[in-house]
């Protein structure tokens, strides 16, 4: 076996192993769970991402074939200007809101283990971060049952109600229904919407009129947004 490491060394090394993609199987899943649950470790991961990133600049340029741009252009979503632009702006706001960490909604998807496991199932971990604006929602999703549990930790005071949206990468927001003003709420995700609950999708919350929910689209900017992470 490899040399034993001191605990502080172990954190530094494990963070780098995760960033470099050296880990597999249960080691990888455990490191990802720790990234969500342990802010000190998450920071160590971020530091490696930042420090290693310039390495990617070290290569030589490659030959760009003439028709490549045309192939990309034809795969871009059809230009349907008004709504597409409005939607992209909305999505950019949602994403910026989460990036700024002023507000955060975190979700963890549990995926069945790829192989039969001897180990007990991994604990459910929900990451939370709080920010200056103070809106915090935490979500956990059981893909087998299609059940989403969302806890409203804190929320702007409003006469309207928090509505949850899932936004697939490159797609438009789809309402998953209203959240509780306080505490948790279990929501059954309809079979038609389960495929949207995938890594890379964004979850966002907007404040909406409760009487007419669910809505076809959000009426205002998100108060919280976050990316879906699959463990």
């Amino acid at each position: 076996m490899a040399d034993p490491l001191r605990p502080e060394e172990e954190e530094v090394v494990l963070a780098a192993e995760l960033v470099l993609g050296l880990l597999e199987g249960e080691d990888l899943a455990a490191a990802r769970r720790r990234q969500l649950a342990d802010p000190g470790f998450a920071e160590a991961v971020e530091r490696w991402v930042r420090d290693l990133a310039p390495l990617v600049l070290g290569g030589v340029d490659g030959p760009v074939p003439a028709g490549l741009w045309q192939r990309i252009a034809t795969r871009l979503p059809a230009a349907d200007q008004g709504t597409v632009v409005a939607l992209r702006r909305w999505r950019a706001t949602a994403i910026a809101a989460s990036a700024a960490a002023a507000v955060l909604l975190a979700i963890v998807l549990l995926r069945p283990m790829p192989q039969p496991v001897v180990l007990p199932p991994p604990p459910v971990v929900v990451a939370q971060m709080t920010g200056t604006e103070g809106a915090v929602f935490a979500a956990r999703y059981d893909a087998d049952q299609g059940m989403l549990h969302v806890r409203t930790e804190s929320m702007p005071s409003s006469s309207r109600a928090p509505e949850l949206w899932v936004i697939p990468a490159g797609g438009k927001p789809v309402s998953l229904g209203l959240l509780a003003n306080r505490g948790g709420r279990d929501m059954a995700v309809s079979p038609a919407h389960r495929a949207l609950m995938a890594e890379g999708a964004t979850l966002a919350v907007t404040m909406e009129d409760a009487a007419t929910a669910p809505h076809a689209g959000p009426s205002g900017p998100p108060v919280a947004a976050g990316k879906i992470t699959i463990l």
Partner: peptide, 13 residues
């Protein structure tokens, strides 16, 4: 794309 394709092609290759 025009500004970065050669660099990114290098990375992908």
């Amino acid at each position: 794309y025009d500004l970065t394709a050669a660099k990114l092609m290098g990375v992908c290759l």
